[in-house]
Nucleic acid binder design. Structure first.
Lengths: 187, 187
DNA sequence: ACTACTATTAGTACCTAGTCTTAATACTTC
DNA sequence: GAAGTATTAAGACTAGGTACTAATAGTAGT
């Protein structure tokens, strides 16, 4: 039996979400209805036409690129920074950051936030991580917001080394702590 | 004076690169030539039409998303593993992994490879990183291949802790070394 | 000045993937 | 059998093109 209108529209939404590049004709084939029906469905569901959908995807990418130009260098969003002193960033743990089995964030994401914050806080052309001593004190779950706070402990101009401490919290609870020894480039 | 053909085509390339969402008509206005001239130019320069351009942007975005999916499980590709003993993975440093300024890989990628290898080598339902002591001994550049080797040093059944050492190499040269204290879940 | 050549413009037919509108069926439910 | 919903069809129109033919403008060489 051909599916009911409701069911078809439910599937339509999913299908288009998964592949926005599909035409009405292909959809009509897939659901064995006429093209007109698909168009009525899209009208009812306010799903734009193929070209609009593609454009939206493309524009989003463009936005992301623009937005990620400064951010690209940092995992998480920097919300406060005082060069060579302190910096704070937030990182929202989403579905893609966790282990499927238990929804616990993979360590390297939490590390990446802290590490890139340590890079960002350094007031120089470029900084690289030389050493790090880290500890995950509590596991972070999906949908939690991690707030990382970096503090510059010591700057050794001679050696070009800087010691940065980063503590990350979820609801004021420490989830990660690390000491990063950063190598800094003088321009 | 209206620009020469060469000059116009040079600018055309740039203009479209900067804003792929521009139509021939708008371009014709901008260069005060006819639409046909713009189309001839595009033909000569093999620049696809607006809709194709938009589609390309959109598809690239989709590819990127797909590419980051496998990253979900392990960073790098595991090429050998003996549970609770050793494991080896390779990770090719691409454009998206490096700092734009100097093509040096961001620390967290190298860390992520090592960390996820440490997770993978553990023969249990799940492992989490508790602590880590790491050192970046040489910077890794774009297009280099990092080979990470994990070795389980000690298993403390009581505490449910496992100590894993990971050394990463580029051309047999040590670029990263770390000791990971992993917390393992018994099912 | 005449010719050759490139560059530009114009016009037409056709394409895709639609929109918007009107109208005819088909299916169900009472 | 009528009413209401769902589906399909048909036709006119749109944007942003391609592909092709043909006319015109400008410029250099002899």
């Amino acid at each position: 039996m051909r599916k009911s209108k409701k069911e078809r529209q439910r599937l339509l939404i999913e299908t288009i979400k998964e592949n926005p590049f599909i035409t009405d004709e292909e959809l009509a084939d897939q659901f064995t209805v006429s093209v007109q029906t698909i168009r009525l469905d899209r009208l009812e569901l306010s799903i734009p036409e193929l070209r609009e959908r593609i454009k939206n995807v493309a524009e989003k990418r463009f936005d992301d690129e623009v937005r990620s130009l400064p951010i690209d260098e940092v995992i998480g969003e920097i919300i406060d920074i005082e060069l060579d002193q302190t910096a704070i960033s937030i990182f929202d743990v989403k579905h893609e950051h966790v282990f499927k089995r238990n929804q616990i964030a993979r360590g390297h994401h939490v590390f990446a936030q802290a590490n890139s914050l340590a890079v960002a806080v350094i007031n120089d052309e470029l900084a690289l991580t030389a050493k790090a001593n880290i500890q995950f004190t509590r596991s972070v779950k999906e949908n939690e917001r991690v707030i990382a706070k970096a503090k510059v402990l010591r700057i050794d101009e001679e050696k070009g080394r800087t010691l940065v401490e980063v503590n990350s919290f979820v609801n004021n609870e420490l989830v990660f702590t690390g000491e990063f020894e950063m190598y800094r480039y003088k321009k």
